[in-house]
Computed example of a mutant assay.
Amino acid sequence: MAQERTGVATLKGNPITLVGPELKKGDKAPDFELNKSLTETVTLKDYAGKVKLISVVPSIDTGVCDAQTRRFNEAAAALGDNIAVLTVSVDLPFAQSRWCGAAGVDKVVMLSDYKTNSFGEAYGVLIKELRLDMRSIFVLDADNNVQYVEYLSEMTEHPNYDQAIEAAKQLV
């Protein structure tokens, strides 16, 4: 049974339970299997040798998630090819693709945790009550060591975009 963490996060002030460990700087990043499309999956190995900026959002169709993904899409254009900017949510790949097309988002890689929630559990962001992934940011170096992590304590708040982007830039 996976670890459950209480008292660390809220949704509009109401407590929620996060499933999985709290990762810290210096930890080895857990592997994951996420859907790039309904039939295509990717793992951490697919981004070998690159710095990974992983932006986790509960649902792409909400205001803060929309803003967060657009902000990292803008940053991705300037970060270069050595940094993979990944956005993870439990939205179906169809919804992610539709949203990207409508929003003109083409630099971030949208990945879905809908099938198994394995990313959410491995990275400690799965919200037990909602089966969504909690808003958070992870920056992994080219060797998959966690170099920056931000778990938001309130789901409706924005992450520190500039700090995450700067952490990724420092690794290339």
Rank of each mutant, 00 (worst) to 15 (best):
A2V: 12
A2C: 06
Q3D: 09
E4D: 13
E4C: 07
V8P: 01
V8M: 02
L11Y: 11
L11C: 00
K12L: 13
N14Q: 15
I16H: 00
I16A: 00
T17C: 08
V19D: 08
G20M: 11
K24A: 12
F32M: 07
N35K: 13
L38K: 14
L38H: 13
E40Y: 05
V42E: 13
L44W: 07
K45V: 08
I54F: 09
I54K: 09
P58G: 12
S59H: 06
V64Y: 04
Q68K: 07
T69H: 03
R70C: 09
N73F: 03
N73S: 09
A77D: 00
A77K: 15
G80T: 10
G80M: 11
V88F: 11
V90G: 01
L92H: 13
P93T: 08
A95W: 06
A95L: 10
Q96S: 15
Q96R: 13
W99I: 13
A103F: 08
D106A: 12
V109D: 11
V109Q: 13
S118Q: 15
F119A: 05
G120Q: 12
E121D: 12
G124V: 12
G124M: 13
E129G: 04
R131M: 10
D133W: 03
S136D: 07
I137G: 05
F138D: 10
F138A: 11
F138S: 07
L140M: 12
L140S: 06
A142F: 00
A142L: 00
N144C: 08
V149I: 14
L152H: 02
N160G: 09
D162E: 15
D162T: 15
A164S: 13
I165K: 04
A168T: 03
Q170F: 03
V172P: 00
